[in-house]
Amino acid sequence: MKAAVIVFPGSNCDRDIAVALEACMGHAPAMVWHRDSELPDVDLIALPGGFSYGDYLRSGAMAVHSPAMREVVARAERGVAVLGICNGFQVLTESGLLPGALMRNRDLRFVCRDVWVRVETTDSVFTTGLQKGECMRFPVAHNDGSYFVDDTTLATLQDADRIAFRYVTPDGQVTDDANPNGSRAGIAGVLGPSRNVLGMMPHPERLVDEAQGGTDGRRFFEGLLNALETAR
């Protein structure tokens, strides 16, 4: 099992996801600088949270043009698993690997707190280790997390079972109050058409040991890594 984390200038969850992956894999992932056009041969590519290039343009818009991202797109098209968390999700929508866009939060404020998400599909390497309908607690921390897609795309995502997570109440109801940012249809995470790319706003890497206040994130990563190991 090998993983790589792409580091953009302004990434700030790169260490966090590296620590989480190491805790679950037993060894550290490769850290790939944004200017590197060559990626090591890996089973998983992670795009971390943060503010790539400052996000002074649209969030994630600059990162798409880095040499490393061109290679990530190529790998994704060849079927390598790509996980984008928070700013990584924004980079994935900007790159076209995922549909839709992440807009300013509904309340026009940055929001950092734990949220509950419901697993909507187990048909992907990312979620096959989880139970459909189960609720998990992950932190969010973002300014631009309101996921928007048009009606046609939303119907496509629903019909193709590509919605991975929805924001819910602790007992699993999709409500406006449970939705921290106004995302359409409560979408917290979405899969690409080939199901090997996942973008999600919540940060599972922030809850991987008890001292952090929970371990749902660890379960997420262990499920993913097991699935990738099995698929090798």
């Binding site: 260490r15 949270g49 940055f110 950092c112 921390a141 952090q212």
Partner: peptide
Amino acid sequence: VWEQYDHMVMADTVQRPGGDAAVVR
């Protein structure tokens, strides 16, 4: 106030805002 601050990045916050003291591992 503090929900507008990312109080968990670096993943070592072991006591979050709202208590007597914050604790960072």
